[in-house]
Nucleic acid binder design. Structure first.
Lengths: 193, 193
DNA sequence: CTCTTTCTTGAATATTCATTCAAGATACTC
DNA sequence: GAGTATCTTGAATGAATATTCAAGAAAGAG
């Protein structure tokens, strides 16, 4: 008997970063070897193939993002303020443009939708879950009378998500802090009324 | 003497569609041969290499988009109404999700930024031009008192562009007509006030 | 300490794919 | 109609790269 030597989470995070930096197709097994420290054989043994590694990395990404979400919305601050902080966090991430910071889900969706139905389905499911989570927060905000309820939590969350997509993409063209903050601010104001 | 036989615009549009459908890396020369009807040798003769074909296709894309823009903003309808129609057009395009409809500039930016600085620069320049054009329309709208001018034309155009990015990405996950129209409607309302 | 099981290694394989090139075809000129 | 310049063709080339596999290394069991 003998146990695997590598730290699975660490390997998956390294793979995530590699995939985000170069995209799935352009990340070669050599890149993955360099990033994860695992030799090809080990990768194939543990994850079946390159695609299996992507799937595993997506699983880790989901878990990491869920934890992050928890972090932002488990305090007892007003829900709207939590959302504002969350949005600021997105902006910060988009600005500190280490490429590694584009959302893996969106990046992969752009690259692999229409090419791999199973991966596409997983990505859409993850993004839908995210939207549901945001929707739940808006529900609470409405219940706490922080919002009028004129627009439903679902409408608001869709608009919020769309805004985040827009912010992230916008940052790819003009990652200037002041402009990004202004955009986020406008978006937030529009959500509040 | 002898002239080239193929229709350059048609070839470039075919290449555009191929690149949008599969992405740059995954579009093989065989795909391009099938899409354009040109044999490898001809492609290399006319465009130097695959990357050259992408650059030429980007040029064609720019020209096509500029003409489309003209079409929407050359009538004498109120500027705000023109913008509304333009936004509706984006939504329609995003819904009829033939994959070929994702904006080539954004798709390429997602894939190639951080991998090809020259292409990245061209993409950003094209997108910046587009933003300037939208900005000019907002200027006219303000001058015509269709808007208060409380927010500058630049601010408005940035927000508008961000919204379009968001809409397009959102459509990749939930390309349902009613939701997309609602999002566009909310975006437009927010721009008007 | 030895044996067995499992993991690790990295060179070999097979495939895919961008690119080249030389022969063949075509249109234009004189 | 002959000559020539240019374009077209598609098989050959060579590089890149995902995947396999057999030998080597290490950990635990008895």
């Amino acid at each position: 008997m003998r146990n695997a030597e590598f730290d699975k989470e660490a390997v998956l995070r390294a793979a995530m970063i590699a995939f985000m930096a170069k995209g799935y197709a352009k990340t070669s097994m050599q890149d993955l070897k360099a990033a994860t420290g695992l030799h090809p054989g080990s990768i194939y043994c543990a994850f079946e193939n390159k695609r299996g590694l992507l799937l595993a990395a997506l699983g880790q990404y989901r878990a990491d993002r869920a934890e992050e979400f928890q972090h932002f919305f488990s305090s007892d601050l007003p829900k709207l303020l939590q959302l504002k902080h969350y949005l600021e966090h997105v902006v910060q991430e988009s600005i500190s443009c280490q490429a590694a910071q584009a959302c893996l889900l969106i990046k992969a969706l752009n690259e692999l939708a229409e090419q791999d139905d199973e991966v596409q389905a997983i990505l859409i499911e993850n993004l839908s879950d995210w939207q549901s989570s945001v929707g739940a927060v808006f529900h609470q905000a409405i219940a706490a009378n922080e919002l009028t309820g004129e627009r439903s939590a679902e409408q608001l969350s869709r608009f919020f998500i769309m805004g985040v997509y827009g912010l992230r993409t916008y940052a790819q063209t003009h990652p200037e802090a002041d402009i990004m903050h202004e955009l986020a601010e406008q978006l937030f104001v529009d959500l509040c009324r």
